[in-house]
Amino acid sequence: MLGKLMKHDFRALSRTLFPLQIGILGGGLVATILSALSIRLSEASWAGANGSNLLKGLILAVSVTSAVLIGIAIMASLFVTLVLICYHFYRSFLGDEGYLTFTLPVSTSNLLWSKLLTGMFWVLINSVVVCIALLIYAVFGTTTSTLINIDVLQALRQFFTQILPEMSKYISIPVMAAEVIVVGIVGLAAQLLQVYFAIIVGGQVAKKHRVLAAIGMYLLINMGVGIVSAIFMSFVTLGESVSQFALNSAQEAGTFMSTIFGWYGVLFVGLSALFFLVSRAILKKNLNLQ
């Protein structure tokens, strides 16, 4: 049943999120073209082309402003993606669609898993699309004469051929990479479950203005999570005896980072389990669709 739930959640989310990703790529291309155009116009102005400096200045201003605005919109798309995912959750669970959702012969756990996994999938897709858009911009939109900015490609090549091998002398790159990916994924799961939890609790405490209640609950829960995380990590760093790590060598700094990353992973898993289990308990024991 989880597969079927995910199929339908994916279909529902794709309606808005797929066009959004296309828009990000399209916006990225427009920003790239405008940026490349403005850089070339700027160069031409400085070269002292006569007669049409006012027009060039105007085009330049419009191009730069448009490119900056599109850039901001692309970066804001992560927030928009999150909002759309949360709105889908809200409608499916607390809106009229809840009458459909909660009469399905599926477990509450599966309902939550489906929302979590499809939400995570779209956040990851959005992150990849934003990275692609930024890469296109960096490679094609920041050069004055050639089509491709060789410096960007060289910097990327240098990262993989020089910096990573250098780092690998002190830390295990595959382990670190795996750690970053795993902690990133559980961190994303914890964040989404925290928002879902806030929506569910907001729906419990308010009969009207549930969205506002959910936002209020999120801020409250976020404060609580911040305090718990700070206390947890303080104990962890004390427990790990930071003093043992003199941190006077890059290798020790790497080991320390890896350990702290691991504990962040533990924290995120704990928070995810807590939000998931309490959300499930509320939906099972105290569901009250009005």
């Binding site: 009229d96 459909l100 012969p105």
Partner: peptide
């Protein structure tokens, strides 16, 4: 629970199918 939901066919008093 999950078991009874497969036995019950429920028509609510409101429209609940997603618009899209």
């Amino acid at each position: 629970g999950e078991g009874t939901k497969s036995l019950i066919s429920y028509l609510p008093e409101r429209t609940y199918l997603p618009d899209w």
